[in-house]
Structure formats: structure tokens, C-alpha cells
Amino acid sequence: AGTEDGLDTRFCRPHADHYSRHGSPYRPSYGAREIAPYRDAALAWLEAHEDDTYVRNAIDRVATLLQTSGPRVEAFRLRGLSPQDRAKAAWARLRNAAVDPRRVVAAWLAIEMIIRDDPQAESKIEFKRVQAAKLIHKMASGTHKRWGEGPNVKELHVYPRSRGRVLRHVGAALEQATELLIQHRAAALPRPFPKGDQT
């Protein structure tokens, strides 16, 4: 079995595909409704602590990732690129979309927070990396072009696939950028819900 990304040969095809997309062969990704309160709380916390040395460090490191990601690559030109180059292209798309680095840092914090509060959380770091990468992948995830006017208008919408080694590279880079912040401030991260209540 395994996946076309060569990620694993231990699972049947459905589980291997699930693993490629979600970072776990069994645990599904967190849904938008589940993660939204954590993203909002994480962003508000970052904004309230912008003068904190470790908050500033994480934001600056993400800004560096965006600025050093190289030229923008259109989504329909990604075919044939290595996973590393596709990951760089994902950062470049975020930069071109002028995504605030604080939103990117907040994505990692949100995953840290929801896993902390999840009694059945997947504990492997790969799951965390993939979950965070999927969040930022959606912030600027495609190429959109439009030609002509009126009834002759033509449109092109291409979205890169959110799966495989690309997510692992994006997630690992984000983990490294936020490493000091998590190391020194994880205990101070807010709880959107009372402890044990995520309803």
C-alpha cells in the first residue's frame, strides 16, 4: 500500500491516504468549528503580549520564513517540484497574500491549545505539524485568474493539494519558528473553554 508521496508502507491504502492528509492513520483533522475559538483566543493573546520577547521572536521568525521563501510559484506550476520547493512556494503564497505573521503563529498556538484540551488527542509531533500546516495552507491556498468580460469571461482556479510531505515541511518550519515561544510560554496560553468543557 502506502501513498504516492512514499510516506508509509505499513497501512492499507485508505489508512495510508488518511495518514498523508491528516498526519495520523486514524485520527481525523480538527474541524473549522472546533479550532476557530482556539485561533481567535491565540491571536488575541498574541496581540495582548506583543512586547513579550518570545512572542516577538516567533513573529519575527515567521516573517523571515515568508520573506526568504523565494519567488511566487503559481499553483498550476507546482507539478514536478520537490516537497521542499512546494513548501517554500506555500510560504511565498502567504507572503504574496500579505498574511499577517501573527495569524501564522496563532495557527500553531491554536493546535497546541486544542491538543492540550483534547482528552483523546494524537500525541505524535507529526500530527501537530500537519494540523498546523493545514490551517496556514488555507490562508492563501491557490491561484485565481480571470480573462475577458461579460459572457466570454474565463476563469482559472487551481488549489494545491493539502497532503503529503509538503505539509510536514511547512509544519516543521513553523514548529521551529515558534519553538522558544512554546518552550517558555506554553503554560500561559489561554483556554477558550473552561477546563474539560469544549461544548
Rank of each mutant, 00 (worst) to 15 (best):
residue 113 M to E: 01
residue 113 M to Y: 10
residue 114 I to H: 10
residue 114 I to T: 12
residue 115 I to Y: 08
residue 115 I to D: 12
residue 115 I to T: 11
residue 116 R to A: 11
residue 116 R to V: 09
residue 116 R to S: 08
residue 116 R to Y: 00
residue 117 D to C: 05
residue 117 D to I: 00
residue 118 D to R: 03
residue 118 D to M: 06
residue 120 Q to P: 06
residue 121 A to R: 14
residue 121 A to Y: 02
residue 121 A to I: 00
residue 122 E to F: 08
residue 122 E to T: 04
residue 122 E to L: 05
residue 123 S to Y: 05
residue 123 S to D: 12
residue 124 K to I: 01
residue 124 K to M: 07
residue 124 K to Q: 12
residue 124 K to R: 14
residue 125 I to E: 15
residue 125 I to A: 15
residue 125 I to Q: 15
residue 126 E to W: 06
residue 126 E to C: 01
residue 126 E to L: 08
residue 126 E to S: 04
residue 127 F to C: 02
residue 127 F to A: 01
residue 128 K to F: 08
residue 129 R to D: 13
residue 130 V to G: 09
residue 130 V to I: 12
residue 130 V to S: 05
residue 131 Q to P: 01
residue 131 Q to K: 02
residue 131 Q to C: 13
residue 132 A to V: 07
residue 133 A to L: 03
residue 134 K to E: 11
residue 134 K to V: 06
residue 135 L to I: 07
residue 135 L to Y: 07
residue 135 L to M: 10
residue 135 L to R: 12
residue 136 I to F: 11
residue 136 I to E: 06
residue 136 I to K: 10
residue 136 I to W: 14
residue 137 H to V: 01
residue 137 H to S: 09
residue 137 H to Y: 05
residue 138 K to M: 09
residue 138 K to I: 02
residue 138 K to D: 09
residue 139 M to R: 09
residue 139 M to H: 07
residue 139 M to V: 01
residue 139 M to T: 01
residue 140 A to K: 05
residue 140 A to W: 10
residue 140 A to V: 06
residue 140 A to Y: 07
residue 140 A to C: 11
residue 140 A to M: 08
residue 141 S to L: 05
residue 142 G to T: 02
residue 142 G to E: 02
residue 143 T to Q: 12
residue 144 H to F: 13
residue 144 H to A: 10
residue 145 K to I: 03
residue 145 K to D: 11
residue 145 K to E: 13
residue 145 K to V: 07
residue 146 R to C: 10
residue 146 R to A: 05
residue 146 R to N: 07
residue 148 G to N: 07
residue 148 G to Q: 10
residue 148 G to E: 04
residue 148 G to I: 07
residue 149 E to V: 00
residue 149 E to M: 07
residue 149 E to Y: 09
residue 150 G to M: 05
residue 151 P to K: 07
residue 151 P to L: 13
residue 152 N to R: 04
residue 152 N to I: 05
residue 153 V to P: 00
residue 154 K to I: 14
residue 154 K to Y: 00
residue 154 K to T: 14
residue 154 K to N: 11
residue 155 E to Y: 08
residue 156 L to C: 04
residue 156 L to E: 08
residue 156 L to T: 04
residue 156 L to W: 09
residue 157 H to T: 14
residue 158 V to D: 07
residue 159 Y to D: 03
residue 160 P to L: 12
residue 160 P to T: 08
residue 161 R to I: 00
residue 161 R to Q: 04
residue 163 R to I: 14
residue 164 G to V: 01
residue 165 R to A: 13
residue 166 V to D: 04
residue 166 V to S: 04
residue 166 V to M: 08
residue 166 V to E: 10
residue 166 V to H: 01
residue 167 L to G: 02
residue 167 L to M: 10
residue 168 R to C: 00
residue 168 R to T: 02
residue 169 H to T: 05
residue 170 V to C: 04
residue 172 A to K: 15
